[in-house]
Design a protein around this nucleic acid. Structure first.
Lengths: 101, 101
DNA sequence: TGCAGGTGTAAGAATATAGTTACACCTGTC
DNA sequence: GACAGGTGTAACTATATTCTTACACCTGCA
C-alpha cells in the first residue's frame, strides 16, 4: 500500500454521505435505485459515490436479472477493517508513489 | 464520535501531504519553518495542513523561546491509532450530527 | 540601520470534489 | 403505444480544498 492508495482509501470512507451508504448496506445488499431512495440522493450522484467506494474495495456490485426480467444492479458491502497509525503511514510514505505495491 | 467528527478525522489523515508531515514528525518535534523546508512546502500552506492535523488531534504545537531568544513554534506528533470498520461507521452515523459526543 | 531567520495571516488563483439536470436506452405490463 | 421502473452517463454548476503570493511584525546580530 503506497501513500496514494492509502490516501484514496481513507478519502473514500471519509465522507458522511458515503458512511451513510455503507450503513445502509450493512443491513444487506440493495439495488441502486432503491439505495438512492433510502439515502435520499439522486442516482447520478450515488453512482459517483459508489464508484469511489468500489474502486477502493468497500463495496462490490453485480448486475442481475430480477424475477420480472428487468436488470437490477445489486450493491453489497465488502468486509473491511482498517487500522491507521503512524507505522502504517510511514510505511505508505516509504513506498514510492510509482511503486505498484 | 459522530459522523462529522469521524469524517473530519479521516479526511485530515487522508492526504499524501499530511501523511508526509506526520512521517517527518515521527522522528521528533520540529519547528514550523524547519518542517516546511523538510517537506518542501511554503509556510503558509503548511499552516493550513497543520491546522487540520491539530484540530483533529494528530499533532500538538507549542510556542517556545529558543536559546537565541527568538520564538519557535514546535510541532509534535500526538500518539494515535484509528480503527475503521462497519461497526465504527454505523455507530457514528447513529449519533446525530448535532450531538456533542 | 540593515540583515537573517523566525511567526502569523489575508486574499486570490487553481484545482478537485460534490451535486443537478437532462438525456438515451432497456423490460414488462396495462 | 404509453407508462412504470430500472441502468448508465454527459455536461454543467456549485462548493470545498489546495496552493501561491504578499504583507506585517518580532528578535538577535554585524
Amino acid at each position: 500500500m503506497n501513500v496514494e492508495q492509502l490516501s484514496a482509501t481513507l478519502a473514500a470512507v471519509a465522507s458522511p454521505q458515503r458512511m451513510l451508504i455503507l450503513t445502509e448496506l450493512s443491513a444487506g445488499r440493495v439495488h441502486v435505485s432503491e439505495l438512492a431512495r433510502r439515502v435520499g440522493m439522486s442516482r447520478a450522484l450515488l453512482y459517483m459515490h459508489l464508484a469511489k467506494l468500489e474502486a477502493t474495495g468497500f463495496v462490490t456490485t453485480a448486475l442481475e436479472l430480477s424475477p420480472e426480467g428487468t436488470a437490477l444492479k445489486h450493491v453489497s458491502l465488502a468486509p473491511f477493517s482498517l487500522t491507521v497509525d503512524i507505522a502504517v503511514i510511514t510505511q505508505a510514505v516509504a513506498n514510492a508513489a510509482t511503486t505498484h505495491e
